[in-house]
Design a protein around this nucleic acid. Structure first.
Length: 846
RNA sequence: GGGCGAGUGGCGGAAUGGCAGACGCGCCGGCCUUAGGAGCCGGUGCCGCGCGAGCGGCGUGUCGGUUCGACCCCGACCUCGCCCACCA
């Protein structure tokens, strides 16, 4: 027995990730192992997409937290026999490059490309099976020309249009993004000037046309919270538009249309006043001369208010009466018109009918200004004259309309339908649906983005750039002159252009496209990144998309993930692709926070640099430690204290795989009595681990996966140096362990696999090209069970029994157990519950 | 204010109707050592009883409910996190 051999053994070579990992990474790259043959139809395609990154400069631990489990999924699927495609790229346009340019005078392109080079190097340290041959970098003209082309198709289809809308404007730095406006008094981040609103002509995409379809998630498997957020973001409201008209008075002839949207047409008889947004176009003409001063003051104040002030709930309602009246179309009643900042110009029609009895905001407003409050809906059993001490907004069964003319007595919903129908018959209203979602504003007054391919000609108007002239290139040299203002707008060589239509002198559009355009279709381009003739290759798109699995952060719940769905539907309608949804399955991993529990950021100084950890422990340890932290969708504060435990685990794997017969000082020297039995037990453990590990890979439960592999390794460790370590059972357990570890810790698995093959005299082949093993059902099935025995739900005893005994036999054994006899004290149980052979509960009633 | 999610040992977490605390960190003890901050072996929820194998009680944010049985399902509340926020 090897226990007794006393000849000095060669000391086992140390597990040294620093030498193993670069060697295998180089070998995989040399063999092109991660370059997917997109034409290969012999295996099922599996498009695995992880959100591409903004090239901020450095990869931090958060990038590893998304990408390394994604890599494990890809490697696992490869072992299942799928043709896996896992590309990466860079979302390379955007504000930080411009901020760097304004502040430090560096060229945005150079800054961006430098960051990308560094991040490529860091990404390679993960040992992930990314297909770098398919890389997409969105700031390259080869990519953004297709943004321009897609924009032109959307324009042709009537899905892109231009209209005026306000931006935050700094007199020195031009348009500012929301994050560049600082403080409650709204000052420019760079120069500190007071920020104002300015109206600009800007381009929009018609996403609202798809609002209803975007609410339908039936063909995709996405997490409930994301679907909920998108649903709320789209914000569908059913109701009616109702046309009020202004009443004539001594100062104006009346008859102006005041259209409102309401979700409660049933409460129309309770409308006791109207409220317009201060920005409503009719405000000036409807203002009574005596009210002019107050109204103008109020409008000015509302304009100067911050969004946050205006949207704050606990703030008191304010408003001003215009001095004119409107006529309620249902009963001809005259009601006063007010303006108030709680009505938003951008939602609905910018005007509401106020029903204080049945809307909390209207109630608060009516209370404050002494306006009448008239109940028109009452719950069953409420006296007609019952006083209200707040808005009655409940929607209870059996509530009926009161004080509502011919509709009195109707059930509220039915009354609403009849009122809407009556108005529609007279052309004074109709059933309507409104959305919170607005059309997508895609114009940015910035340099570092995709130039919008439009030319303005005095004679021909707005002329699209001909497709043959694409791309409209960004000029390479850019002079910011220390200001944030868009340098394209003063770059004469860029600006001046001949009109494609008449050949006359014309000007280019100087706005660029929102960078969310880039990410709204990038996964299609990964399939043909270098094709200069067409935006996508249809045969590839048909074979590989929709994406099978998408992974990334939940921070993109409503922007990127909604725009991508919109683009896919629009591209389908344009005949470019043939699918309505981009991503069949979505997984949102959690966020890794800094050790302080805050978001990681350079300014907080709480960023964990993975390179340091890799240098110390190796990439495999870092990967497994991130897997082991907790459930993938949970994230949490960064705390590296446990990383040593994971590293020790890999050391033990190394030891059992390469030195099964070695002993450690301190091992108890107990020879195994029954080697055959111990070997069989080990086999059972290995096969059960395989069954569990397979389920964990399928369910993305990487934390419990690592725990299971640790358990098996610990069991192997205990048998090391015993006679069991020389059996085929041991060998099989090691083989399964290495295969199960391969997707998670690819380098050490590859190293151990190559040594196994060499020891067996076989030619090298990659562990990552092996087939995922199958377990033996017979071994996995339970032969004996340890049955817990409860009395009144409390654990009192356990008994080891063969699996599958009939209930009567189990009862006889259980009732004969000394502990059970003692606990029962001579009584018979009133009831015996058998929980599927997994537990017995004896119930005694008092 | 609304929506979504979470609350389990000293810590990260496991178990999602059936033995609470898998696995790991930390800590305690042992082996091996000139030494151990390496490695290996063992122990470790809390309280009480016992020299001891062990025995008993308590225990998954709080309070109720459903059930033979609840960390798990239902109701109310508390705390924390994220998203949205006067949406007519």
């Amino acid at each position: 027995m090897s226990d007794q051999t006393s000849a000095p053994r060669a000391r086992l070579e140390r597990y040294d990730p620093a030498s193993i990992e670069p060697r295998w990474q180089a070998r995989w790259a040399e063999l092109g192992m991660h370059e997917t043959d997109l034409e290969d139809t012999s295996r099922p395609p599996y498009y695995l997409l992880t959100m591409y990154d903004y090239p901020s400069g450095d990869i931090h631990i958060g990038h590893w937290y998304v990408k390394t489990p994604t890599d494990a999924i890809g490697r696992y699927h490869r072992m299942l026999g799928d043709n896996v495609f896992m590309p990466v790229g860079f979302d390379a346009f955007g504000l930080p490059a411009e901020n760097a340019a304004v502040k430090r005078g560096v060229n945005p392109r150079e800054w961006t490309m430098g960051n990308i080079a560094n991040m490529r190097r860091q990404l390679r340290l993960m040992g992930a099976a990314f297909d770098w041959s398919a890389e997409v970098v969105t700031c390259e003209p080869e990519y953004y020309r297709w943004n321009q082309w897609l924009f032109l198709q959307l324009l042709k289809a009537g899905l892109a249009y231009r209209t005026s809308s306000p931006v935050d404007w700094c007199p020195n730095d031009g348009t500012l993004a929301r994050e560049q406006v600082e403080g409650a008094d709204r000052r420019c981040w760079r120069c500190g000037a007071r920020v104002e609103k300015r109206d600009l002509e800007q381009w929009y995409l018609g996403i609202t046309r798809y609002a209803d379809e975007l609410l339908d998630f039936s063909s995709i498997d996405w997490p409930e919270p994301i679907r909920m957020m998108q649903t709320n973001w789209i914000g569908r409201s059913e109701g009616a538009t109702i046309d009020f008209h202004t009443a004539a008075d001594e100062h104006q002839p009346g008859g102006d249309l005041l259209r409102v949207f309401t979700t409660r047409p049933d409460t129309l008889f309770g409308a006791t006043f109207m409220v317009l947004a201060p920005e409503h176009p009719l405000v000036a003409s409807l203002t009574h001369p005596e009210q002019r001063e107050a109204v103008e003051a109020y409008v000015t104040r509302a304009e100067g208010e911050t969004e946050i002030e205006r949207l704050s709930t606990d703030r008191e309602k304010t408003g001003v009466a215009l001095g004119s009246d409107a006529i309620n179309p249902i009963n001809g009643e005259r009601i006063p018109i007010w303006i108030a900042d709680y009505v938003l110009a951008t939602y609905g029609t910018g005007a509401i009918m106020a029903v204080p009895a049945h809307d909390e905001r209207d109630y608060a407003f009516a209370e404050r200004y002494g306006l009448p409050i008239r109940r028109v809906v009452a719950a069953e059993g409420t006296a007609d004259g019952a006083a209200l001490d707040g808005a009655y907004v409940a929607h209870a069964a059996g509530e009926r309309l009161v004080a509502s003319g011919p509709y009195t007595g109707l059930e509220a919903d039915e009354g609403g339908r009849q009122i809407t129908a009556a108005l529609a018959a007279e052309g004074r209203g109709e059933a309507a649906v409104t959305y919170r979602l607005r059309d997508w504003l895609v114009s940015r007054q910035r340099y570092w983005g995709t130039p919008i391919p439009i030319i303005y000609c005095d004679r021909c108007g707005t002329v699209p750039v001909p497709e043959a002239d694409l791309p409209v290139r960004l000029p390479d040299t850019v002079d910011y002159r220390g200001s944030g203002e868009n340098p394209l707008a003063r770059d004469e060589t860029f600006l001046r252009v001949a009109c494609p239509s008449c050949g006359g002198q014309a000007r280019r559009e100087t706005d660029t496209l929102d960078t969310f355009i880039d990410s709204s279709w990038y996964w299609f381009r990964y399939l043909s990144p270098e094709d200069a003739r067409q935006v996508v290759v249809r045969s590839m798109v048909d074979r590989w998309t929709p994406v099978a699995q998408y992974t990334g952060g939940a921070e993109h719940a409503v922007m990127h993930l909604l725009y991508s769905r919109f683009f896919t539907k629009a591209m389908d309608d344009l005949g470019i692709v043939d699918q309505r949804e981009p991503f069949l399955r979505l997984f949102n991993q959690g966020q890794v926070l800094g050790a302080d529990g805050e978001r990681m950021s350079k300014s907080r100084g709480n960023v964990q640099d993975p390179d340091e950890l890799v240098a110390r422990y190796g990439a495999d340890t870092v990967r497994l430690f991130l897997f082991f932290m907790g459930p993938w969708d949970q994230g949490g504060p960064w705390n590296p204290t446990g990383i040593g435990g994971v590293h020790r685990f890999l050391n033990r794997v190394w030891t059992v795989a390469l030195d099964p017969e070695g002993r450690d000082p301190g091992d108890p020297a107990e020879p195994v009595a029954d080697v055959a039995a111990a070997g069989r037990e080990l086999r059972i453990a290995a096969h059960r681990t395989l069954q569990g590990a397979t389920a964990d890979y399928e369910g993305f439960r990487f934390n419990t996966l690592v725990a299971k592999l640790m358990e098996l390794t610990n069991q192997l460790m205990h048998l090391r140096g015993t006679a069991v370590a020389t059996t085929p059972d041991w060998d099989e357990a090691i083989r399964l362990l290495v295969l199960m570890l391969a997707p998670a810790a690819p380098h050490i698995a590859e190293e151990l696999w190559s040594r196994r093959l060499a020891a067996a005299g076989e030619a090298w082949r990659s562990v990552h090209a092996e087939r995922w093993p199958t377990w033996d059902e017979g071994l996995v099935a339970e032969r004996t069970v340890e049955l817990p025995i409860q009395i009144n739900g409390k654990l009192r005893d356990r008994v080891e029994l063969p699996a599958g005994l009939p209930a009567a036999e189990i009862e006889a054994i259980v009732l004969a157990r000394p502990k059970v006899v003692a606990a029962l004290g001579g009584r018979q149980p009133d009831k015996i519950v058998h929980a599927g052979g997994r537990l017995v509960n004896l119930v005694l009633r008092d």
